[in-house]
Amino acid sequence: MQLASFDFQQNHFDLFGLAQSFRIDVAQLEQQYHALQTLVHPDKSAHLPDAEQRLAMQRATLVNEAYQTLRNPLCRARYLLSLHGVDIQEENNTLMPPDFLLAQMEWREAVSEARQARDAAALDGLEARLQRETRELESRLAVKIDTEKNYAAAAELARKLRFMEKLAEEIHAAYDAID
């Protein structure tokens, strides 16, 4: 790609030359990301006039933003669904299945208990379990988006994924707190 043809409007998948799907080749994404940053990073234009440097910063900012979006499964799902005109409504749609909400409450209690007890081993166990369940949710999401193209169902799975991410953040904070 030539710098002059850098298109700020193209979507993130096009930017990295990836097919528009939930399942992606992470290694390829990474490789493309490095190749793009090698081209646009501000370090490459530090000797050029201010206007060029500003443009470089904007390009590199966009490439970083696009990379983070595609690398994180929840962000990727959110972005992909938005390209299909579907908003996952994570802020205003809190209507989740009761069994899911019950499971969430149990999770929260377990994390908070481990935190109170300063029990790192318990946190390790919770983290491993959360990772398994998150992976499982992600593969269901891939089926809904890539195979069935059922974006409404995918949006609900994405909202569930958001809950899982919040739990992961809580476990992370608990580790920091007991350290």
């Binding site: 490095h34 090698t38 370090d43 000797h47 050029l48």
Partner: peptide, 18 residues
């Protein structure tokens, strides 16, 4: 090494810092 690169002096090994 970073200054040399940023000043625009060409070097043989091209590298990138993130």
């Amino acid at each position: 090494i970073q200054a040399n690169l940023l000043a625009g002096n060409r070097s043989d090994d091209d590298w990138l810092l993130l």
